[in-house]
Design a protein around this nucleic acid. Structure first.
Length: 210
DNA sequence: GACCAGGCACATC
DNA sequence: GATGTGCATGGT
């Protein structure tokens, strides 16, 4: 079959079509979603975001002023709501301390510095930081997640226990650094993982990469 | 009822 | 430095 990174992308795109990521109306919504979706089904995240939206709270200033206990109650459907409320607050503290609460000012910062700053926020790890950079700020950064590792290791490109940075470097070295490509590629890997590579119910026999 | 989900920080050895 | 554990709801 001789799969390559490029041919895998082409196949997935031909099979699944565009994924229209990130689902969200604003940069802030992307950031909130990125934190809420940590180890969590997106459907649950949507419920939490809907709660915030309907309460008119999906704005940096509003969330910044909201008591953490109340924030936690709004995001309950997303699970881990206490720790995630704290993580959202940690980000907001950073946003207001560094950028006066302005995502617009924040968007003027270079990608390496922005990434470093995001990673310094307690509760934001590599995947969350890179999701924010790619889907929130349109920076050409490849987002690595469990599906990415699982799929590429299953197809023999990498071993399954490699660390985040190694996978990311490998991908970015071998692909055109293009926001649109990285956007769709990651989303398509998630789609493939969800539909065909579930841990207990692998359906490799009908995988579009077969 | 078991299993899983678009991680991360922290404890312990 | 590797390995284990808590965090928690809702869908399949």
């Amino acid at each position: 079959m001789n799969l390559t990174l490029d041919s895998i992308y082409k196949r997935l795109y031909a099979y699944f079509g565009p994924q229209y990521w990130w689902p969200g109306d604003s940069v802030f919504e992307v950031i909130v979603g990125a934190i809420l979706t940590q180890n969590t089904n997106w459907l649950n995240v949507e419920k939490a975001i809907k709660n915030l939206k309907e309460a008119g709270l999906l704005l940096p200033r509003r969330l910044y002023n909201l008591p953490i206990r109340r924030l936690a109650s709004f995001i309950k459907p997303a699970g881990y709501y206490n720790i995630k409320a704290r993580r959202l607050k940690e980000f907001l503290d950073f946003l207001f301390k560094e950028y006066k609460g302005s995502l617009k000012i924040m968007s003027g910062i270079s990608t390496p510095k922005l990434r470093q700053q995001l990673l310094s926020v307690n509760g934001i790890g590599p995947e969350t930081a890179d999701s924010i950079l790619l889907y929130g700020f349109n920076r050409p950064i490849f987002v690595v997640d469990t599906y990415t590792k699982r799929i590429f290791s299953r197809h023999g490109f990498i071993s399954e226990d490699v660390d985040y940075a190694t996978v990311q470097n490998w991908l970015m070295k071998n692909l055109k650094k293009d926001v649109k490509l990285f956007n769709e590629y990651h989303a398509l890997l998630v789609k493939l993982g969800k539909e065909y590579c579930l841990k207990r119910r692998p359906r490799c026999e009908i995988c579009p990469l077969k």
